[in-house]
Structures are given as structure tokens and as C-alpha cells.
Design a protein around this nucleic acid. Structure first.
Lengths: 146, 146
DNA sequence: GTGCTATTGCAAGTAAGTTGCGTTTGTAAT
DNA sequence: ATTACAAACGCAACTTACTTGCAATAGCAC
């Protein structure tokens, strides 16, 4: 299975109601392989020479995100949106200096989100939640001591 | 005290190691009054006619955020950064359709963040965390049924 | 194959945020 | 009070992220 991520990507696209196109398959392959939140400029770099058109990429990512194939993540890292392929729901610790990301999981978090919705008057159901923890990583701390 | 938010703003600026300037005081007054995450364009509107220069605003907000007078919040709402004056740490439920925001508090969340840091190899201390819950508000749900 | 429509590329445009630089203005020291 | 220095400011030009309209292409159902 791991042998042919291309076929996997095609299948994933069809399952989620999209057309299985070369372009979207390649986007998915990048996100699946990198396993971290990426911006459009970053994805373009990974796609390399024969990259997709910029506009197409933005549209594809929005489409994939709204059908929950990928997830849009907002980190305090630059100005660009990040998109991530998610196998298992998780969160991130982000370094405010260098932007390095470390993922972590926590079961409670979903319940906190549920409770917030229950108490809410404006909302009935949560579709997603994000918990991001910010700090300065050990490496950057050391840099500052110099 | 509430009578003169201008003086309060000046004091707050000095306490946090900034110069007490007219401009930054007015920014703070807007954020304190509105009590919600705001983008630069939104702040400009509130400042009105004799608003500050755009570049100045961006620089001021970054300065205030990095000295923790205000907080940078990332919501899945448009492309712009949001800044918020925070009296008591809290989180948000955000409508993915119309962007309406409802705040909530939860004590556990801070502990989850602490635990994530403790388990981490890259980080020793968290400086902040954010939990945002996403959904579609009741009003927008009703619109879709029509 | 045929036809429909999702998807794509191109090109032009908008909006958010940044940077360099010269000027102004708090503030602390005199 | 005066001075001196750095923080804060305004202006203008610039970069980057993202959007939009439209015509061309290509999946997919029949």
C-alpha cells in the first residue's frame, strides 16, 4: 500500500466526492508525506518544477478542507494559512521564534469543546476545534543566552 | 476609573515598558472597549477619521503583543490577524459561515497545555495557548434550510 | 463516444503586511 | 528647563498571500 501513494490519493479523493485528478493527488501526496501543517508557498516548493498553478492550489486546498480530507490550521507563524493532512486528531506546540512544530494528542480537549458548545446559546454542534500551545523551543532559548 | 480610559491606557503602557503615546493609547482604548478579537482594518475603522498610519498600527500591535499587553489570536476568519485585549484568559467558539464569536472559559485547558510541554523534548515552558472551537451558528444553520 | 460539470491555467486585481528612512516626541539625565 | 537619545511615527514603495473572471481541459456517468 505504501508502495503506491498515488493510488491511495486517488482513492481518497473519490471517497470524498472529488474527481481523481493528477493535481489534487499530488497535493495530497505532499501533505501525507510531510505530516505537518504547510502553507501554499511551502507546498509549491515541494511540488517542485512542474508545480500546479497557484490559483488552482488555493482552490483545491479550500475544496479539500471543506470536505474534511485535510484540515486548515492556524498557527502564529507568518501570515499564511496552513493546511494539514490529519490521520488522527492532534494539536501542536509551536515555537514563537523559529516556528518549529511538535504535535501532541489529548483526549480531554474534544470534551472541553463539546461542553463549550453545550453551554453556548449561539451554537448547537462543533465541527472542529484546535488547541495550539506557544512557547520558545530549547534551541532558541539557548541562542538568546549567547 | 472607567471615566478615564485614556489615563488607564497610559498607565498600562508605562507599566509594560512602552512609551505612553497618544497613538498606542487610542489603540488600547479601542481593544479594551470592544472586548473581542479585531483585525487591523477593523481597528482602523473604529479609530475613525484621524486614524493612525497603517504601518504604525502594525508595528504597535506587534510590540504590544510581544510584551503581552494584548494577545494575537488566530481564528479561521478571513486572512487577517486578530488582536485582542485580554483581561481573563479565555477561548472562542467561531462560526465558520458568518464569523460570529462567542467566548468561553475553561480551567482544564491550561493544564493540558502544561502537560504537553512536560512531555515535550523541544520545549520547557509554554508562554501561551489557544483553543478555538469551530462550528456553524444556529442563525446560519437556519439560513441554509431556506 | 457524448455531454455535463468539476477542475485547471492564465492574467489581472485586491488586500494584508513589511521595510527603509527621515521626522517627531516621550523620557530620563543633567 | 534643557538636552540628548531612543522609541515611536508617517510616508511611500514594496512584497506576499490570496482572489476572481473566463476560457480551455479533462473526469465521470450515461
Amino acid at each position: 500500500m505504501k508502495q503506491n501513494s498515488h493510488e491511495d490519493a486517488y482513492a481518497l479523493l473519490r471517497q470524498s466526492g472529488h474527481r481523481a485528478t493528477e493535481g489534487r493527488a499530488r497535493i495530497l501526496e505532499v501533505l501525507v508525506k510531510e505530516q505537518k501543517p504547510m502553507t501554499v508557498p511551502e507546498i509549491i516548493k515541494k511540488l517542485g518544477h512542474a508545480g500546479l498553478n497557484e490559483a488552482t492550489l488555493y482552490r483545491a486546498l479550500e475544496a479539500l478542507a471543506s470536505s474534511l480530507v485535510i484540515r486548515r490550521v492556524d498557527l502564529q507563524k507568518g501570515n499564511a494559512r496552513h493546511y494539514e493532512f490529519v490521520l488522527k486528531h492532534h494539536h501542536h506546540v509551536v515555537c514563537l521564534k523559529c516556528g518549529v512544530i511538535e504535535p501532541f494528542s489529548n483526549e480531554l480537549c474534544g470534551r472541553i469543546a463539546e461542553r463549550a458548545i453545550k453551554k453556548s446559546k449561539l451554537f448547537k454542534k462543533a465541527s472542529d476545534h484546535s488547541l495550539e500551545v506557544f512557547g520558545v523551543c530549547v534551541r532558541c532559548l539557548n541562542k538568546n543566552h549567547v
